[in-house]
Nucleic acid binder design. Sequence first.
DNA 1: CGTCTAGTTGAATTCCGTCAAAGCGGGTGG
DNA 2: CCACCCGCTTTGACGGAATTCAACTAGACG
Lengths: 238, 238
Amino acid sequence: MDSPLLQRSSSFCQACAIRNRAICADLDDGEIAILNSIGRRRMLAAGEQIMWEGEEAILVANVIEGILKLSTQTADGKEQILGLVYPADFLGRPFGQTTPYGVEALTDAHVCVFQRADFDRFAREHPRLEHKLLERTLSELDRTRRWMLLLGRMNAEQKLASFLLEMSERVGQKGCTAPGREQFELPLSRQQIADVLGLTIETVSRQLSKLRKDGLIDLPARREIVIVARDRLEELAG
Amino acid sequence: MDSPLLQRSSSFCQACAIRNRAICADLDDGEIAILNSIGRRRMLAAGEQIMWEGEEAILVANVIEGILKLSTQTADGKEQILGLVYPADFLGRPFGQTTPYGVEALTDAHVCVFQRADFDRFAREHPRLEHKLLERTLSELDRTRRWMLLLGRMNAEQKLASFLLEMSERVGQKGCTAPGREQFELPLSRQQIADVLGLTIETVSRQLSKLRKDGLIDLPARREIVIVARDRLEELAG
DNA sequence: CGTCTAGTTGAATTCCGTCAAAGCGGGTGG
DNA sequence: CCACCCGCTTTGACGGAATTCAACTAGACG
């Protein structure tokens, strides 16, 4: 189903870094051309917000580069991060009236944005795209549900261990200096880690210090993590 | 898109109680006939399990009647309920290898079961069904994410208040004796409520007693809830 | 070199979990 | 019909984990 025409077309999409991993993956050249015409690229600086909770859902997007967070807050202002979005992931709420969470870039990011109305129309006319989107949404639902177990039933130590292991899988895969995924740079501040795990910043800090003292990890810089004893970390995470 | 032929066909699906709310809703007669041929009905007794976490994903289903729970557990055996499934909801993991959670009936239930392979094939050939499934999955993801805020950032009192309000919407809609949704029967035991909210059974019991003492609710029987002061409950839930 | 923010550490407090015992209610058998 | 039993629920006492409040430290940046 995949077309071997990468070099024939000079269109934007054909040169896209995530072309083969995003939902646009098995579209043909004609379809890509349409998608190309309704989408546009946009740069985001770290900390920049692109969608606001409760606002009308105007945009959807593919993430090309960078990491973003989805978040919401309680009536009294405590934040909860609902998910992290990585390159090739889909972003936004198609077929919905309002955006159910805020979206903010954690790092400088590069996204491919569509007006939701345009995207919805295109999707309904192209079942293969909808199928991709469905598979992606089902996986995301599975991942989100796994996170519920962490939020509801794990203590602070288990939460941190699980978080570090997950981040090492997600962030540590790039061509790193370190051997494999044992060293990586966190895209989140301590407060943001706390907001992911349903903890306070102090508890996160204390647990990281404890893991370091126990020799499971090292913390060479504020946002650097070195996993020293992956096996023991996995044991903690359960 | 909906066909006005309810009385022409005598097929099973046409007589189905949830025919117009489930994902099969806007299929035409031919499509319904196929679906009818690959699905079969199954009764479940309260407490009966129909899918097991980690097992190969063989079945998917529509819920016709009753309430089921999706759940998982930590390495050390603590359970977390990941979601409740109501009539007209879709159940199971299409397009996936393994079932990521256990499924158990909370009440006696009635489901319409498909072999996943059959269903997947049918879905891929019928974009309208896939679209319905996509919309449903997106809504489910939204609801699940809202639940994450509860698990991560609410205290026991707020959790109970939110839970009771949600249940009153979901369970209190039937033709009840009570005026509106202010009285209803819980489909969950105290332990199961605890497993939904990420609490212990004792905390659930204490918070319910507190809400009763404060005059927000009444508890005429173990599984009966009367909402006395909805406004104050909503205030607590935030 | 000073300021500013993010992060760490400590002490006190609070909320929830744990352990233990008692209460309630529905079903069964005498 | 009542007594008994069993599982579910409630209540109490206690301890511990995480939050809160507060002070301090380390880098980053001008």
